[in-house]
């Protein structure tokens, strides 16, 4: 009954030229994909580009120190196994999250660092969003700066990418919005003063001026989920890793910008 009335109403509105948007959101064609960088003011771009003014470089430098520190019962440093990060870690972040065979699921870069702490250094995992984990992730990711995002091709990942994509498309929360409503359908527009952008995740961890600190991709995702007034997930939750995985497939081919700067 209500449905039939809606149809009649909808056709009247279409006849009146009021309804314009398609029902099914579409992804952005490869040729139109743009990094968040391209939406920023020239001063913010300059801050990201210049290593001496990019505040994220402080974390990268701390990460380099931590890389060489012996940790845990095994008494080993990252460098003891991986050597010179500029060669061993080159291109690694560009394909994360990646499939971890023993766990049978994708892990993001922060989780990989913690797996090495637990499995190989026999140390406690580092807490999410705290300085040391962000610093190590930023240091590892900076070794891929300028390389194209190249998602892990492991076929086991396919169902996880699909779950991430489904979440991105799904309307939820009190505002009944899906990520896609903003980031596919309205990326050329502004939410209050902010450019909406295409949700490209090629610069994480990144320094956000609003936060006055470096933060992970999951922190950014949790911000948007809060904005939708939807139930959120804890750091490290499989749902957030799946979302990260899908976002990296959207950003395929874009240069890694870590540590990026964003407003």
């Amino acid at each position: 009954m209500k449905f039939a009335a809606t149809i009649v109403l909808a056709s009247l509105l279409i006849a009146a030229g009021i309804v314009a948007r398609p029902l099914i959101a579409t992804e952005i064609p490869q040729g139109e994909r743009r990094s968040g960088y391209s939406f920023m003011a020239p001063e913010t771009r300059a801050m990201q580009d210049d290593r001496t003014s990019n505040p994220g470089m402080l974390w990268v430098l701390d990460g380099e120190t931590l890389w060489k520190q012996k940790q845990g019962a095994a008494g080993k440093a990252c460098a003891d196994c991986h050597g010179d990060a500029s060669s061993s870690m080159k291109g690694v972040a560009a394909r994360y999250p990646a499939y971890d065979k023993p766990l049978g699921r994708p892990v993001n870069l922060e989780q990989r660092v913690n797996l090495c702490r637990v499995r190989h250094q026999e140390a406690e995992p580092l807490p999410y969003e705290k300085h040391d984990l962000l610093a190590l992730a930023a240091y590892v990711a900076e070794q891929s700066r300028g390389l194209p995002v190249a998602p892990d091709p492991a076929p086991e990942l396919e169902p996880f990418v699909t779950k991430g994509r489904d979440f991105f498309m799904h309307r939820q929360g009190q505002l009944n919005l899906g990520c896609t409503n903003c980031h596919d359908d309205n990326w050329d527009k502004h939410l209050a003063g902010s450019a909406v952008t295409q949700a490209m995740a090629n610069g994480y961890p990144m320094y956000r001026l609003e936060w006055q600190t470096l933060g992970s991709l999951q922190r950014r995702l949790r911000n948007c989920i809060n904005g939708m007034r939807a139930q959120n997930y804890n750091f490290g939750a499989p749902e957030l890793v799946e979302l990260e995985l899908y976002l990296m497939t959207r950003a395929r081919g874009m240069p890694v910008e870590t540590p990026a700067v964003r407003p």
Binding site: R21, Q172, L175
Partner: peptide, 17 residues
């Protein structure tokens, strides 16, 4: 298909915080 939220509605919403 509108993105404008329904300001006075409780049903048909998913995963509300």
């Amino acid at each position: 298909a509108t993105i404008m939220p329904s300001y006075y509605r409780l049903d048909g919403l998913d995963r509300v915080a």
